[in-house]
Amino acid sequence: MQKALHIKPELCTGCLQCELACSYEHEGLFNPSMSRIKVFEFEHGRHTVPYTCTQCAEAWCMKACPTEAIHLDTKLGAKLVVESACVGCKACTLACPFGTIEFNPVSGKVDKCDLCGGNPKCVEACPTAAITYIDADSTGYDRMRSWAERTHLEVSQ
């Protein structure tokens, strides 16, 4: 079963442990500027929202790449950047509607979430389970369940 990152912004405290973990996994040091997951703040920190690549099934980045440097990991569903093939042209960064693939000025290549080979470190680091890694067909399950519960309560009243 393919899995997906599932983000619940209402649980996020904005601590950036996910950014620290991501940068450590990929760069070997603590450097949120290099993180592929980013937490955005709104209204004086009232809302803090982690955001990263959703691993589109038909990925714009992959289609836009002129050197076929982005390929699909069929098992994980992740779109991976092959560093040796990437020429840093940034076509993918223009194509991605979500802005989740970004140019890395240090390497001269692009970076994006690779799901850490199936063990996403952001998930492990998150202290509130705002980021989980669950069956890809179940990201709406909790929401569906809560509506079902409401319906049930209304019916039983």
Partner: peptide, 17 residues
């Protein structure tokens, strides 16, 4: 109180919004 928030790196999040 709306919610609680954390400082950088903090897994407590005692801050109040």
């Amino acid at each position: 109180l709306i919610t609680n928030k954390a400082c950088f790196g903090c897994t407590i999040a005692c801050g109040r919004i």
